[in-house]
Structures are given as C-alpha cells and as structure tokens.
Computed example of a mutant assay.
Amino acid sequence: MKIVDRISDFLDDQRRKKHKKIRERNDKLRAKGKNPTKKGWGSMVNTGTGSMNQDRITRIYDAAQQQKNISEEHEIKERRSGEVKRK
C-alpha cells in the first residue's frame, strides 16, 4: 500500500501546484482589470440533427459553415470593441 499512497500523494501535490499556478495567473490578470475566465462556448449552431433524412455530408457542411460564420462575426465584434489586437 505504500506505493499506492506515494503515487496518490504525488498526484495530489501536482494538482495543488497546478491550481496554485492558475490562481496566481488569475490574480495577475484581475490586477490588470481583465477577466480571467470565459463563460461558455459562445453561440452554438443548430446542426439539424432532428431531420435525419437529409444527406449527412450536406448537414455537416452546413453546420460547419454556420459555425464559421458565427466565429467571423464574433471576431469582427471583438475588433470593433478593441478587445483583441489584429494579427
């Protein structure tokens, strides 16, 4: 049982280090006035999986295209608001 306990202790230490590092990073971001957490994934697309009679390839392409359009709109909004620097 000693080996299992040592492995468990090691993994607990690794988790604590990771959480401590994340807390320090978040504190630095909050000091700068930034929000370190993003909530959710943003807008999602209706994939149309309710209508299974459609061609599968067409459904996948349409969903991917809709998601791409939403992503582009989101980037444009961010650029207009000045949150993200241009690449």
Rank of each mutant, 00 (worst) to 15 (best):
E72C: 09
D13C: 15
R23E: 05
Q67F: 13
K34S: 02
L11R: 09
H19R: 08
I7Q: 15
K77V: 15
T49S: 04
R59T: 02
Q67G: 14
M1L: 05
K32W: 01
E72Y: 15
E75Y: 09
S81Y: 12
G82H: 11
R79G: 15
Q66E: 03
K32G: 01
K39V: 10
R56K: 04
D12G: 12
E24G: 12
D27V: 09
I57R: 10
T58S: 12
A31P: 00
D62A: 12
H19F: 11
A64W: 03
S51H: 00
I70V: 07
K38L: 11
R56M: 05
E73V: 03
R15C: 12
K2M: 03
G48L: 00
A31E: 00
A31Q: 00
K18D: 03
D27H: 06
Q66D: 04
E75Q: 06
T47S: 03
Q14D: 01
V45E: 00
Q67Y: 08
T58H: 07
A31Y: 01
G42Y: 01
Q54P: 00
G33D: 01
K2S: 07
I57E: 03
P36M: 00
S71W: 12
G42V: 04
I57C: 06
G40Y: 01
A64R: 06
R25E: 07
K34M: 04
K21A: 11
A63Q: 01
K28T: 11
R23V: 13
S43V: 08
E72P: 02
I70F: 09
D5T: 08
R80N: 11
D55E: 02
I60M: 04
I7H: 13
Y61P: 00
I70M: 06
S8H: 11
P36G: 03
S71I: 05
K87I: 13
N35K: 04
M1F: 06
E78N: 05
T58E: 13
Q14T: 08
R25K: 12
G40T: 08
G50A: 09
T58V: 12
K39N: 01
Q65N: 04
S81W: 15
D62K: 14
K21Y: 15
K34F: 04
N46T: 15
T47M: 09
S43W: 02
